[in-house]
Simulated scan of single mutants.
Amino acid sequence: MKEKKSFFKGALFGALAMLLIAALAACGIKAGKKEAVTETTETKISELKTLIDQNYLGDVDEDELEEGIYKGYISGLDDPYSVYYDEEETQALYESTQGEYSGIGAVLSQNMDSGVITLVQIYEDSPAMKAGLQDNDILYKVEGEEVTGQDLTEVVSKIKGEQGTEVNLTVLRGEDAEEITVTAVRDKIQAQTVQYQMLEDNIGYIAVSEFDAVTYDQYKAALEDLENQGMNGLIVDLRNNPGGSLSTVCDMVDLMVPEGLVVYTEDKNGKRSEMTSDEEHQFKQPLVVLVNGYSASASEIFSGAIQDYGTGTIVGTQTYGKGVVQQLFDLDDGTCVKLTIAEYFTPKGRSINGKGITPDVEVEHERDENHPEADNQLDKAIEVIQGLR
Rank of each mutant, 00 (worst) to 15 (best):
G10Q: 15
A213G: 00
Q98F: 11
D254M: 09
I159S: 04
P127K: 08
Q197C: 10
K44L: 13
K158F: 05
L246R: 01
A92F: 08
V107I: 14
V291Q: 05
E179H: 03
K141V: 03
L223T: 00
Y205V: 01
K9M: 11
S102D: 14
T181Y: 04
L331C: 00
I385P: 02
R389H: 13
V288H: 05
K355L: 11
G32E: 12
I138W: 02
E343G: 12
V384W: 09
T181P: 02
E124H: 13
R186F: 11
G310Y: 03
N240V: 00
D333K: 03
P258W: 14
Q318N: 13
G230P: 07
E300S: 01
G103S: 12
K9R: 14
V60A: 06
I203D: 03
E227T: 00
I104Y: 04
D151I: 14
N241I: 04
G149M: 06
G312S: 11
G144I: 01
F329C: 03
G334W: 06
D308M: 09
I301P: 03
V182I: 09
I122K: 03
Q307E: 12
N55I: 05
Q121L: 05
S245T: 11
T317C: 04
Y216T: 01
G161S: 08
G10F: 14
I235H: 09
Q163T: 15
L19V: 15
K322L: 15
Y101S: 07
N228Y: 13
I301D: 03
E343H: 07
S299E: 05
I45G: 07
E64T: 13
G32P: 08
I69M: 10
E373L: 07
Q195W: 09
K220D: 13
T335S: 10
V262F: 09
A131K: 07
N269V: 14
G323K: 05
Q229I: 01
G356M: 06
A31Q: 07
L226I: 07
T319G: 01
Q195K: 13
R350I: 12
M1N: 13
N202A: 08
Y294I: 00
K4S: 15
A296Q: 03
L12S: 15
M18W: 14
V171K: 02
T50H: 09
Q318S: 08
L290Y: 05
K34Y: 12
T311W: 01
N55H: 13
K188S: 14
L57P: 02
G144L: 02
D360R: 07
I104A: 03
L152R: 02
L12F: 15
V120C: 07
L77Y: 10
C336I: 08
S297H: 09
E47T: 14
Y205A: 02
Q386Y: 02
A207V: 12
N269Q: 15
D333V: 10
I352P: 11
V315F: 04
K4E: 15
Y101F: 14
L152S: 03
D78K: 11
M112E: 09
E300L: 06
M1K: 13
D113F: 02
I69D: 00
K220F: 10
I341Q: 09
A177P: 02
C250Q: 00
G354P: 00
L199F: 06
E383A: 06
V236Y: 03
K160P: 04
